[in-house]
């Protein structure tokens, strides 16, 4: 596994998303508080933070799935409010957290649905659309599953199919909500490696909510740490994953060091520094299968 796909430094071009002072509440509970962020083409940004910090909400608000946020969101130089859902879908692909499907669509049918925002109401997918879908399936390594039913696939395969569908949208922005949840370590690495590659090669702007801090640090050039709906830090992994930040947001004691072999950032995490080491772990990416999130 190589760590060359870091999106840092690829800040060329106009920003894809620019959010300023965005607040959002559900039933009078403030979920997001004055969040500001910018996403540039070619960047892969990791969205991290404890459960309930507002990661999923932020993704949904950023692309207008949930409307009614305060503040200013601009999508590719235009206010988000001026887009119809269909127009948003031509620029932004969103892969939700749960990807369960109870109906027997084939993988190809599912991926072709990604072409919907580009088709007229009574227009069937043409040769070009089928080619784009095949290419998306090839990129995510599911072309050999094209005629299988989506509901018979494993979690990792299904996740890839959903990312293929997102790619078939030919978006400029890709938003992923926990793309590696419930996957084994090998599939977590495969998927993040693939997404980071797409950001680097095609200039996609990617924001991925990621639970696993080591994975986030490894694949993302920039991390945004959310805490109680606020942006606590927005910078390179080294600058974000400090013991202070992790203590404040997650309530854990962390040691941060360079892996002597890969030179990558590594976290060693224990619960509140009160001597309890039950939850302690050497949280290297290689040794984490089957553990609870930090």
């Amino acid at each position: 596994m190589d760590s060359s796909h870091n999106g840092s430094g690829a800040r060329s071009g106009a920003p894809l998303i620019r959010a300023e002072q965005v607040s959002y509440s559900i039933d009078d509970t403030l979920i997001l508080r004055e969040v500001s962020l910018v996403l540039h083409p070619g960047e892969m940004v990791g969205l991290i933070g404890p459960n309930g910090a507002g990661k999923s909400t932020l993704l949904k608000v950023l692309i207008g799935l949930w409307r009614g946020a305060e503040g200013d969101i601009r999508l590719i130089e235009r206010p988000l409010a001026s887009y119809t859902p269909r127009e948003v879908a031509r620029y932004v692909a969103y892969v939700p957290q749960t990807t369960a499907v109870d109906f027997a669509f084939t993988v190809r049918e599912m991926v072709l649905m990604g072409r919907s925002p580009h088709l007229g109401r009574f227009e069937f997918e043409g040769e070009e659309d089928r080619r784009i879908a095949d290419e998306a399936m090839h990129k995510t390594g599911v072309l050999h599953l094209a005629d299988r039913f989506v509901n018979t696939l494993s979690g990792g395969e299904r996740q890839r199919v959903f990312i293929a569908r997102a790619l078939a949208q030919q978006p400029r922005i890709l938003l992923l909500d926990e793309p590696t949840a419930n996957l084994d370590i090998r599939h977590q690495l495969d998927i993040l490696d693939m997404v980071a590659g797409l950001a680097g090669e095609q200039g996609l702007g990617v924001i991925a909510a990621i639970h696993d801090l080591n994975l986030a640090a490894h694949f993302c050039g920039r991390l945004i740490l959310l805490h109680e709906g606020r942006v606590l830090a927005d910078d390179t992994p080294d600058a974000v994953l400090t013991p202070q930040n992790l203590s404040l947001s997650f309530g854990v004691e962390a040691r941060v060091y360079r892996d002597p072999f890969t030179q990558g950032l590594r976290l060693s995490i224990s619960r509140d520094g009160n001597g309890h080491h039950r939850a302690r772990e050497e949280a290297t990416s290689e040794g984490r299968s089957g553990r609870k999130p930090v």
Binding site: K60, I63, L65, T84, P85, R86, E87, V88, A89, R90, V92, A93, Y94, P96, T98, A100, V101, D102, F103, F105, M113, G114, S116, P117, L119, R121, Q169
Partner: peptide, 20 residues
Amino acid sequence: ARDMNLLLLGEESAQGLGVN
């Protein structure tokens, strides 16, 4: 018809693919 296909994928996926 196509909107209904997308609705089968769940509300958020459908909206993400441009369905109101």
